[in-house]
Design a protein around this nucleic acid. Structure first.
Lengths: 200, 200, 200, 200
DNA sequence: CATGAATGAGATTTCATTCAT
DNA sequence: AATGAATGAAATCTCATTCAT
């Protein structure tokens, strides 16, 4: 029953390289086809690694998904980016925050889709997604609160803002137009507060 | 007391009964476990029908999903409900629309989750979901437009409103609180327009 | 992802035939190679049935083993056989019981080996094996007790007798010689009680 | 106080320590789970040694099993122990031999189970098991032969005695009671030969 | 029309073994 | 000598689908 198996003659990549390629492949396949519809075999093929390596590194397919959203969620990147906003004016601030949010989500679209798509059905993913959402909301709300608004109002507006951006980005599958964004900001901040769009 | 002419309501043909039970079972299983993670065998068991019947009626599992979202999407119900709003005041109108929307989604939660969850990965579902969203947005926008607003503004507000309600209902998994709703409406309509909540 | 699968054009065997063939194949393979060393694929091949049928009928490999020892253990056959002994003389009685035991075990050798071999490691098999042993011991003891012996003595002798026969049959892998058997009986019943072997 | 010349007992070469630990772990895992159901990785973990060391020392898993039963079978220990019997009286002698046998098997239970369990399926193990059994039988028979018995009778009794003890110890999973043992001896030596149990 | 036994490709996971270091 | 990351064949089990009845 024992067959000859084992390490191949050629030296393999320096270990972390292979792991990274698996995560890359899983990321784009999970985003495109969904977790359930992606065979681990396909991930291995796309990554150019042997089948067994997935399980050597991640134990299970579920473990791979968890590692993916744990290591590649853009929480800290988003936090850093959103905290970079400097504008004093609420409307300009929201505009800037939206740009930064879109930039991050654009760069990390695959993970964003995975967070959205697999959060139903995978509690660990749901947790990450919630964490990401609530962090963003907290930062946006903190900005708004600093600019003539109660905390409660600020949080509601921040939440509506983020939810709208997320739906537009992921479910609508459409890049939010600048126009839509400007009007959204105007609406959320009260019609009188006209947004100065000359900076575009 | 008068005899009911024609086909009596109580005696739907048995085949339609089985078909309905399959759709019922599929609905709750797809909503809970997701399409991919639901075996057709399990659907048949839960429905109390033989395995083969699923394929007799729907040809494929995918066909069952399509029939489900085609026949059970709540588009017309939502349309009817939303068009029932009478309020003149924008804030009260939005409040009323939100209540009606929540009522429909609450009653049809399973389908709502399926539309959200499976729209990625199943173009036919995506189509239904989009249709549902855009219809609701159009109705809400039409209402707002009738009450001192440009079409463009109205559409943006309607979209933000619906997206926020949807995210709150399906992704947050939390029933939107009345408080949140009131503040959301206040924010979207401009802070000055206080919403009279005495009607509660 | 959906491929065309399903029932083949040719009519399959009348169902119980296939199930029986699976049990037959499992029986001889488990006896020969051991449970762990027998691939289910090999069982299906030897039985001439498709792979999936094993799991359709028995759910798991373990389930197949359990069905095997449940349906094919020779408890009732052994009981019937052993109870058929008529001899008055203890020595002749034991001789007859041994012949009958050997006949049953010979006919059902594969199951006997499986019971012995897999009883360590599979509690459900252990249970069947114990049941079989204790039943045989009880019958033999009852016979001895009826012929000038206390119950306690009878049970001890019966147990030693059966254990010796079992070890000889299964572990020694040697057919117990008549000679050995005669001397064993003589020893167990006390040397004075010479066994009349003229009936051979 | 005198310095111990030569290799001090406490300083076995480190490699022998690792080798011993692998055998220890394999012994208890094979006994508990069975050879096939024990992963080599688990053995290495339990032994606290790197995976590769198993194959460095034993070439294959099968080689490990063979080394185990070759180096750790209790043949010589059993031989020494059984030959230590001094009693003149057959019954007391058998009693003593049984005690000694039980002592050895008790101390080396894991190996005993492995010999029993894996002798089907591994000829090399079967050989060791047979050797062990036949050696014990030969010693017991020699003792009996020295005390008023033909060689042939002695061998049969010795075999029945050992088989019964083995079955009781390993398959029944029950410690043989003193009572059972006394009655067994009485039965095997003929009812008249009462066993003097006052030595207990 | 309706059924459910049967299929077999394919999914995930395990594991003895190798070999560059 | 010793290590442990890497391999990939093979194992068990699932499941959408078919079709004889």
């Amino acid at each position: 029953m024992a067959k000859t198996r084992g390490r191949p003659l050629a030296a393999a990549e320096p270990s972390q390289e292979a792991r990274r390629r698996i995560l890359d492949a899983a990321q784009s396949l999970f985003a495109e086809l969904g977790y359930d519809a992606t065979p681990t075999k396909r991930i291995a093929e796309d990554a150019g690694v042997p089948q067994g390596l997935l399980f050597y590194y991640f134990r299970t397919k579920e473990g791979l998904l968890e590692a993916l959203v744990a290591e590649r969620n853009f929480l800290s990147e988003l936090e850093r980016e959103l905290k970079g906003t400097k504008h004093q004016d609420p409307a300009q601030g929201l505009w800037d925050l939206a740009q930064r949010f879109r930039a991050v989500v654009g760069r990390r679209e695959a993970i964003a889709r995975i967070l959205m798509r697999e959060s139903l059905g995978h509690p660990s993913v749901a947790e990450r997604f919630t964490e990401m959402r609530e962090t963003a909301i907290a930062i946006i709300a903190a900005f708004l609160e600093a600019h003539a608004m109660t905390r409660s109002q600020a949080t509601v507006i921040a939440r509506a803002f983020l939810y709208t951006l997320l739906m537009a980005a992921i479910v609508d599958n459409a890049t939010t137009s600048d126009d839509f964004l400007l009007q959204l900001i105007a609406a959320l901040l009260g019609n009188e507060t006209k947004c100065d769009t000359n900076h575009l």
